[in-house]
Design a protein around this nucleic acid. Sequence first.
RNA 1: GGCGGCGUAGCCAAGGGGCCUAAGGCAGGGGAUUGCAAAUCCCCCAUCCCCGGUUCAAAUCCGGGCGCCGCCUCCA
Length: 475
Amino acid sequence: MLKLRNSLTGELEEFQPLEEGKVRFYSCGPTVYNFFHIGNARPFIVFDGLRRYLQFKGFEVEFTQNVTDLDDKIINRAKKEGVEPGELAKKYADAYFEDLKALGVRPADNQPRVTEYVEEIVEYVEALIEKGYAYEMAGEVFYRVREFEDYGKLSGRTIDDLKSGARVEVDVRKEDPLDFALWKSSSEGEPSWDSPWGRGRPGWHIECSVMAQKTLGDTIDIHAGGEDLIFPHHENEIAQAESRTGKQFAKYWLHNGLLKVKGEKMSKSLGNFEYARDVLKRYDKETIRYFYFATHYRKPLNFSEKNLQDAASAVDRVYELLDRVEKAGLEYEADKEPETTGGKEFSSRIDDLREEYEEEMDKDFNTPGGLGVIFETVKETNKFLDEGGNEDLFLAAKAANVIRTLGKPLGLFQEERNRSIGGLEEELMELILGLRNDLREKEEWDLADEIRNQLRGLGVEIKDTEGETNWRKKC
RNA sequence: GGCGGCGUAGCCAAGGGGCCUAAGGCAGGGGAUUGCAAAUCCCCCAUCCCCGGUUCAAAUCCGGGCGCCGCCUCCA
């Protein structure tokens, strides 16, 4: 039974979707005014993982992730660069999809864009005005915060708390300084649409409520995003959505912890960020995914080269084993019974580990716990192979299959590494290693070792095993 | 100032009253194996921020400190 920590209640709750077997899942997507940075990638990766894990557990998942392609940040940046806002948004939306793919994040089922939903947004705002939750003032429409009695329930604050914070700018057009814009008037040259209140564009929070409800329904199961969105973004989404329908907007609110750099939040405004696409030049996607999944998604996490290198070594360890099984030519035959006691024990141990993995993951998507189980599987399989010498070695392939299966929700251990790549590089390596092995035959160790050192300098690591010498590029 | 969170080995990180004589990964030390390496296996490396309390029993619950972080303004 999967349990999730719900930000709305602060409790660990049993996950029960509204409709048996089907999950409606919304996760906040990017505002496409720039490339996204590696910190922005955390919710993309982590909630992609949760989505896959739900599927792994047999749920049908409908997943929506929006693209905010209309927003002040886009307009401002476009002005600065002297391009059309639409053009800028398109460029970065394309880059967003490219980068997601490179990170191994699967495309959402629905990827609505704000510019495609303006009409729906206008209708939505009209409905809010009709119900008395919003009012027009000089071509703009504001949400009347005091009218929604649950306001603050997600972030755990009251309107009075917020007042005393007093960092809210005073705007004479608002009835209350905490009221927020649903619709803004556009000035000359800014993107604008017709509306009952004149030409304008949507405000800052409305698009998520509208697109979530339009694609998934009035009440959705899971709404996820970074914890810095809790207030005001998600709080305002709840206000809009629930005051319009009178129904609960999202059953479970999930928030990921932030990525930090030297103890500080990575953010565009602090300038301490690195684009995801640049990190991908140094580390492969599984290393980056491992880096994220090795910490629980709700916890803060430090970004550092050391942490990424550790992640790369850890991922390597798993591939070493997968490679070992493959090189040994072992294949799992499901209907073949183990013959030895060692084999029987190992086989049932693997079954146990599979269950332990799910137990761990069921505890609020505890990926570090799940990974721990995978590494135990790796260790036990290596040991089983080391002991060797029996008829049941094919069971190591069972373990390898399990490792790949359990890695799937995390998008880990899915590649074919250490495989020959063909081409001239492959042929040259064969030539060099062949000559080196001739030297080894003649026990000319100095020269053989010199070749190994030189290759290492080139980033090629070689391994002399009994029958043959293997090589691979070390990243 | 208000609201929320966190503090477990050299580093990263699970665990959240007894199975903890505290998973797992990285790094390090010792050993096995190896021509030497690599890989692999075995062993070693933590009284769980501090002080009080509750309990037969606390890393885990309660109270009080200290430290760090996030949100309250655009931010994943």
